[in-house]
């Protein structure tokens, strides 16, 4: 298994091979993503039973929780890409950071907005300083930091490596923030106000949630791959394989 992983790691490391292999995957992953996401959301919205306490407002969970977990996973993936970009100086890793950041930040924003909207019918206020929402707010700022740094540096290689370092430092910080915010939250208002934990959910609610989670991850992967492929073309535009690739494709 180990050398299989290494083979794929080196092959995907070369921008040209990455471009070709993902080009073959995308036509299959796109419909899969749309179908899974559609199925999960429709099931959660229309067919799942309402929550006995919160009524139908809990249906926001089918977009809030997947977006939150995808945003967190996206940041961790960016941290790993950052480490690879710094230690092994891989151009593809820098490109991945640039591809993940925008949609990752959007997902964090979605998680925040849906969490806030969900708070209104449940606790009567638009914003609740709940531990998970606050951590998500800081995660959004971490994303914006990576994006801002990347746009501030003109040289693509330097921007990639700087964003990589920030992502690595950010990942360490995300873990610490999670626990410090939880400690801070328990300090001030006790843990009465908590978003429903998905583990205690009955299966007819949990299944659609897991499906829409898978849908979000697939959608995230598609957007990242397409953005990464555009970035590969731009970064390798002087190479003649790019010229050939674009000249015969109309």
């Amino acid at each position: 298994m180990w050398n299989w992983l290494k083979k794929w790691y080196h092959k995907l490391g070369s921008p040209r091979y990455f471009y070709e292999i993902t080009g073959a995957w995308l036509p299959w992953v796109w419909p899969l993503a749309v179908l899974t996401l559609g199925a999960g959301l429709v099931w959660g919205l229309a067919f799942a039973p309402p929550d006995y306490q919160q009524g139908n407002s809990y249906r926001i969970i089918f977009i809030h929780v997947p977006a939150a977990s995808a945003a967190l996973l996206g940041y961790v993936a960016m941290g790993v890409a950052g480490l690879v970009a710094l230690v092994w100086r891989m151009k593809m890793a820098e490109i991945m950071i640039k591809a993940i950041a925008p949609f990752g930040a959007t997902l964090a924003a979605i998680a925040l907005i849906t969490g806030a909207i969900w708070g209104k019918p449940t606790w009567g206020t638009w914003w609740v300083w709940d531990a998970r929402l606050t951590s998500m707010l800081i995660l959004l700022f971490l994303y914006l930091g990576v994006i801002a740094l990347q746009n501030a540096i003109t040289d693509p290689r330097q921007a990639g490596r700087a964003a990589g370092l920030l992502a690595v430092v950010g990942v360490i910080n995300v873990v610490i923030v999670k626990y410090s915010v939880q400690w801070w939250n328990s300090l001030h208002q006790g843990s009465t106000i908590r978003m429903t934990e998905e583990s205690t959910m009955p299966p007819e609610m949990l299944t659609p949630l897991l499906i829409s989670m898978a849908g979000f991850y697939l959608l995230f992967a598609c957007i990242v791959l397409v953005n990464a492929r555009s970035e590969v073309l731009w970064r390798e535009r002087r190479a003649n394989w790019v010229r050939r690739e674009l000249s015969n494709v109309l």
Binding site: A148, L149, L166, V177, Y179
Partner: peptide, 10 residues
């Protein structure tokens, strides 16, 4: 500030 303030939270 944008880079560092989130890191200052804990």
């Amino acid at each position: 500030a944008l880079l560092v303030l989130p890191l200052y939270v804990p």
